[in-house]
Design a protein around this nucleic acid. Structure first.
Lengths: 212, 212
DNA sequence: ATTGAATTAGACCATTCGGTCTACTTCATT
DNA sequence: AATGAAGTAGACCGAATGGTCTAATTCAAT
């Protein structure tokens, strides 16, 4: 077997960058070729399914990295707040302190149903991991779930505001408040404080996966 | 003057929908023509500058609507919490309960610097309007600003999570917590309660508009 | 050294892209 | 009824798009 000029891993990393900052339609072959240094036939040789398959591979690789590195503390032992803080640090690294966008955002605009499903699975796993910390902190299942969703939303929103305003602070603040969101029932104290004042539900009872 | 077959307003509305859900690169002329029912020459007649000009017009129109309708309560008189709740209701309407994406998200992927500037201005105005409510609720200028940014982030993030998970609740929850975010120093009580326990800063002092 | 599969170069294809142009309609004003 | 600008139809353009194909390399294994 002839070895590849550029490792699969490195190719995927470069493809990831293109999809991350241009989206699916913006990731033309010209750009993909430029980023990888591979000519079109080589790309098709490695990804016979074309862009669709590339996106799939890219997402899968990022999934793995996100799970094995960023979210890992959620699945290990130890005090939840400490683990949450570690996750926050790794998120900062993962998103380049707010200068790198999220594929779950950029890849969910005019893509195939397949890609949509994939991203949904990725985010579901992310949320579930976050919720674990809430549960271990004594939250009800439903409450932990809500908190986890809101935490993901805070991060995604922080990235957007940071991108549009060209200021990384909103994202960094989302990270700073993350441990509280995930492990405290009353959030948003600058130092983790006090017990839990139960907070009521907000948008009605939470039966997941309904319409629209 | 011969009257237009389709009013400028209506054309803009339809163009908006295309840009909103496909982004800039995804908004091909084929789709723009299909959505408006106008042939290419007609589009160019109305927007001699092509897509760039369309995006500009679309953003401007949405800016106006957003200001005059959604954000208006922020610039009127009355008790801040009440005004905040009104804004939340109008945001729900504006974003179709979480089924309509935000142009500030979809239009900031591989677009011109010009468009980037425009969106930044739009979001800046949004944030400033939000911050007004915080100030009137007794927050410091810097604190109100941070809260406003975080509130916008919560909404944008809610939209993303709702879009990816195909579940509108995360967005609706972001709206439910909005009044607290904007007018209370300790947020996230289900009913507005208590005075303000001052919360400290999170991600360092806030000097706006620095690098990246 | 030869083999033979993995890999790459690059020509090639039909389609779509954003964008321009001229000629024809349409209709409020006069 | 004639005018004349506003608006529309649709042919047309070169470039870029996603995608395919054949022929040539390259190199680990024999």
């Amino acid at each position: 077997m002839r070895p590849t000029k550029m490792s699969e891993e490195q190719v995927l990393r470069r493809l990831t960058e293109v999809f991350r900052e241009r989206g699916y339609e913006g990731a033309s072959y010209a750009r993909l070729m430029g980023a990888t240094g591979l000519v079109k036939a080589s790309l098709y040789h490695r990804f016979p399914g074309g862009k669709e398959e590339m996106v799939d591979a890219v997402l899968s690789r990022v999934d793995r990295e996100f799970l094995e590195y960023v979210l890992r503390p959620a699945h290990e032992a130890g005090p939840p707040p400490k683990r949450a803080r570690q996750i926050a640090r790794r998120l900062q690294e993962f998103y380049g302190s707010g200068t790198r966008w999220c594929l779950l955002d950029t890849l969910t605009l005019s893509t195939s149903a397949r890609t949509l499903r994939h991203t949904r699975g990725s985010m579901e796993f992310w949320i579930t991991s976050f919720a674990r910390l809430g549960r271990e902190s004594g939250m009800s299942k439903a409450h932990a779930r809500r908190r986890a969703e809101d935490a993901v939303a805070a991060i995604e929103g922080g990235l957007i505001v940071s991108r549009v305003m060209n200021n990384r602070r909103p994202f960094l603040r989302a990270l700073a408040t993350l441990p509280g969101r995930l492990t405290q029932d009353v959030e948003r104290k600058s130092r983790r404080t006090g017990p839990s004042t139960t907070s009521a539900s907000f948008a009605g009872k939470d039966r997941r996966s309904q319409q629209l």
